[in-house]
Amino acid sequence: MTLFQKTVVSLYRMLASIILVGVLAAALGYFATIIIYTINREWVAPIILTKSSARVMATGAEAFRARQAVSALEVSRDSLRLEISLQERQQAELRNLLGRFKQAQQVEQRASTDLAGRLGSLQGAHRSHNRQADQLNAASRAMQITIEKDLKAGLITKETAIRSMAQIISMDGAATDSRLNTVKLDEQVRELQDGIRTIEGGAQSTRALESVSRLSALEKELAETEILLLKNRADLQNKTVEFEKLQAIVKTVEATPYFRIAQGETESAPFAFVPYENERAAEVGEEVYSCWAKVIFCSRVGTVTWVGSDEERGFHPVFQRDIRGFLVQLELDEPNAAKDQVLYLGSAPIWL
């Protein structure tokens, strides 16, 4: 074998060795990467969210609508509270007025009953006086005839006859007045008794019916106020529950990373997907590391500033499968680190 041939064979052997070492190194690196991602619990997958993202825009719009609904409900709830306060005051005033009205009605009824009793006892005396007056009137008419006969016969003077006739006329007028007073007294007693019976449920006195009607109107107004008050209280309770639910929705929406971007000042911000198996590493203030070739030559590039709670779906960078987790927001000193396939929280992977 010539020297040239020997050289060619050596070069082939060296190239084969290099290829073999490369293949072995690649396989070793692949298996090392698999082992690292199987053991390591600090890796995260960075993502960049922007204001123009469809999900960010939809979240911002949803939060805006929810806030509008909360504001409208708050105004409606405050209005209901004011209305209920006024109705409660009206209810108290109507109850007070109704109580006073009933009390006054009872006082008047007792007074009317007492007065009717006393007037009733006077009715007997008046009728007795009237009978006596009728008897006197009958005697006066007989005397009047006698006076006229005596005057014609010249037994008495004209002046005496006139005085006697005046006395008779006066007695007759007194008897008439007494009968008239008896009629008035009877009417007063009747009115009092009719009023008492009307208040007790009858229908004999229009004046008493007016009083009963006013009482009924007050009771109706009070009932309507109480019904409206119950309705408004139920509406207030429903609106309060709805308000609390909407507030919870607003808080839920505002707790998402998409809302943070929608309301933020920057057009984009770096986040990272954290699988559930790595959630222990996700804490505010935790340092963020970036590595060359995913696992070596690592350096600190930022910190975690916010940790989310909503579940998100991600894709494993090595095993190529769907995984579940959540998002954290990052503050990066080197913005380009957000374009890496993976980052690490807390420290570099294993001993590298």
Rank of each mutant, 00 (worst) to 15 (best):
F64L: 03
N96P: 06
E88S: 14
A66S: 08
A61F: 10
E93V: 12
V56G: 00
E88T: 10
I48A: 03
A58F: 06
V44C: 00
I48V: 15
A66W: 02
P46V: 02
K51V: 09
P46C: 05
S76A: 15
L94G: 05
A72Q: 07
R81H: 09
L49V: 04
Q68S: 13
A66P: 03
A45R: 13
G60N: 00
D78I: 11
E74N: 08
V70C: 03
L86G: 13
E83A: 15
T50D: 08
Q90D: 12
L49W: 05
T59L: 03
T59Q: 04
D78M: 11
S85T: 12
R81Q: 15
Q91C: 13
L82H: 11
L49P: 05
A66G: 07
E74M: 04
P46R: 02
R81D: 14
L86H: 13
L94P: 05
A45D: 06
L73P: 03
T59Y: 00
A61D: 06
E62G: 02
A63C: 08
K51Q: 11
T59S: 08
E74W: 01
L94S: 06
I48G: 03
A61S: 09
V70A: 08
V56S: 02
T59F: 03
G60H: 01
V56T: 02
T50R: 15
V56D: 01
R89M: 11
R65I: 06
P46I: 01
I84G: 01
T59P: 01
V44A: 03
L80R: 02
L94D: 05
E62N: 04
L73S: 15
L86N: 13
L94H: 04
M57S: 13
L49M: 08
Q68P: 08
A54C: 06
V44H: 00
A45T: 15
A66Q: 03
Q90P: 05
S53H: 14
I84T: 01
T50F: 10
V44I: 04
A45H: 13
R95K: 13
K51W: 10
R67P: 03
R55W: 05
R77S: 10
V44N: 01
A63I: 05
R55D: 13
R65T: 05
F64M: 01
L82V: 12
R89G: 15
A66H: 02
G60L: 01
S76K: 02
Q90Y: 12
L49N: 07
V56K: 03
A61P: 04
I84F: 00
E74G: 03
A63S: 12
L86C: 07
R55K: 11
A54G: 10
A63N: 05
E93P: 06
